[in-house]
Design a protein around this nucleic acid. Structure first.
Lengths: 364, 364
DNA sequence: TTGTAGGCGTTATCAG
DNA sequence: CTGATAACGCCTACAA
């Protein structure tokens, strides 16, 4: 169990009880020399370096992060602020995202500080505190709004960050996003090819920029396909299951309900499916539903949820890369990365039950 | 937008550019005095304190966390290590848990450091690194195994931590847990009262201690009710949806399949329901399913998942309280907290389709 | 190639 | 009550 075999004269110390000064004393060197040897400076004799290295491993020396960071003037820590709790109950996306970001940061020797916002205070307050107390070197922000106070604050402070999602000021900061417009064009097109002519859309709140782009993709494809645009088929949502339920009721209680519904995210789609079942609609026979995010549990419901998705692991990596670059060279020009989502067919969509053979010629 | 109204002669500085030495110089005091005034020491004249306070707010002084922590010899940070990624895809529990822990820590002025484990290295490796580099003052460990190497390591190091779940060495460390044994007795009893006589159980792997206790509760209630114990109705699982699928297949393909299945967690239950549907079982008419955890999305599937649950927010608070107590007084005796889960009926269980009126008299 | 000395920004312990 | 002075543990010029 315990792999420590203490020699006869050797006294064992608990982890982290060895200081750099101890090593120095033991080796008859100074702290400075030991430090440089350990940190791979060139101006150290091979012999000395070897001695130092060996002593370090032997005594189990590991530098104290706090002290090193203070001396170097950085925290090697990135902040991630979670949105207030109750708003996102049905969301595996967040934990998957945290995981991927944390793993990616770790490769760069950075830590992830997770902070939870409470709904009573302003959205920027947590960021302000973290910046002022200098607990982090940068932020990862997700689910951006078009006019995002967090972005405004950080840009104003000149504090490094990357967003997952675009904003009105996207020309001024690094960002990563998934091309939701294209994704929704694809999904809409898919539904149209299946024969759907009345397609509903449940959005994500007009502050949430990416949701706007998804709506845009939806509308664009409708136009290209000469389907009439019915305003009542576009419902607002809030990216939660509950929001989906309400929107679905508004859609399905209409005299001519849609035969398919596109949702701004998977949580919304789950709510839509729930409401649909309660109103007696069979999925996918009487109603097709498509979500967005690709959360894993979508595969475990009945029927499995067809969704638009992009690897969360990839997203995390990309964002971390952008952020690391920014930290290393603050003055580099802003860059961004736009990834394409994939339509993952799982079974919650299909041809409409009664295909009305309306004229479907290409309008051009 | 910008609430900073700089006076004519007043030069504005970015957040965190004011040092304690600046304040001291400005006020004609020493750093020490300023520090004590700010930290509420008693031996400071009211007048001086007031001057210091005002100057501090006026200049927007906020102490630099790194430096303060180095001086005080603590990190005010708690570590939480996430299990390797692919193992828990269907799990909102984790993000809800992170949220609650982080919020609770924040009330005590502590930060949460989230670290993700990768499956290639030993389970204790992340803990070892965090301890050695002194990045955290303590840990929150969840999903403990009966013989838990992480617990062994930390106990051996004498490093503070609290677990969510019991272990073989639970007498030696603080822990919080939900009384899974009682919970499963309750759930089993509920099913029996509904008329079920063949009840299946999908466990959580025999390393996972709490899952063992759940199994125990299940068995106890079976005995008390004189239902015969059928070994083939107890299947192992791994707390994932996939594990649930496999277990369900083993259960439902038997010549006399169970009419109800109890699952060690909700993720498992989702897998069970998926497999059941694929094998043509209607839920709850032909098969009742009960999960454990109370993840929010359980309410959004069809039928909504009946589950055993305890407020994740409460859990987080309790654990943080235990940990804070330990950090303040390392030598206090070990304490623990056992909470009762509630059976949340949502619709995935009901009476069996054909109630065989076997003799159901009380065996005593 | 190594030692010396100072600094990172606090808090803490003494005198005075 | 307040001012020196010394930690905290490490990094890094600069000097030798």
């Amino acid at each position: 169990m315990n792999d420590v075999k203490a020699g006869p004269e050797e006294e064992w110390v608990k982890s982290g009880e060895v200081r750099i000064s101890d090593l120095a004393a033991e080796l008859g060197l100074t702290k400075g020399t030991v430090s440089r040897a350990l940190n791979g400076y060139e101006d150290i004799s091979k012999k000395t370096r070897k001695r130092v290295m060996e002593a370090a491993t032997k005594r189990g020396y590991v530098p104290t992060t706090q002290a090193r960071r203070l001396a170097m003037g950085l925290t090697e820590t990135i902040g991630l602020v979670l949105p207030p709790m109750p708003s996102q109950p049905v969301n595996t996306f967040i934990s998957e995202f945290i995981h991927s970001v944390s793993a990616a940061l770790h490769l760069h020797g950075y830590d992830l500080l997770v902070h939870s916002a409470n709904s009573e205070e302003s959205e920027v307050e947590p960021y302000r505190r973290l910046v002022q107390s200098r607990k982090v070197d940068g932020f990862i922000i997700f689910r951006t709004n078009e006019k995002d106070p967090r972005v405004n604050y950080l840009l104003n402070e000149g504090f490094p960050f990357v967003t997952h999602g675009r904003t009105a000021r996207m020309a001024e900061h690094d960002w990563f996003d998934i091309d939701g417009e294209k994704a929704f064009r694809d999904a809409t097109s898919h539904l149209i090819k299946l024969g759907h002519q009345r397609i509903g859309f449940v959005g994500g709140g007009k502050e949430f920029f990416s949701a706007q782009l998804r709506l845009k993709g939806f509308r664009t494809m409708l136009e290209e396909s000469c389907l009439e645009k019915v305003p009542s088929l576009e419902q607002p949502g809030d990216l939660t299951g509950q929001g989906g339920e309400i929107a679905a009721q508004n859609l399905l209680k209409q005299t001519r309900p849609p035969t398919a519904i596109l949702c701004a995210n998977d949580a919304t789609a789950l709510g839509v499916m729930k409401a649909a079942r309660e109103l007696g609609f069979n999925i996918p026979e009487e109603l097709s539903v498509i979500g967005y995010d690709g959360i894993a549990l979508g595969a475990y419901i009945d029927p499995p949820l067809t969704t638009l998705t992009f690897s969360i692991e990839e997203s995390g990596k990309e964002m971390v890369n952008l952020l690391m670059r920014r930290l290393k060279s603050p003055d580099l020009p802003v860059i961004s990365k736009l990834a394409s989502a994939i339509l993952k067919l799982r079974g919650s969509e299909g041809p409409p039950s009664s295909i009305q053979n309306k004229n479907m010629e290409n309008c051009l």
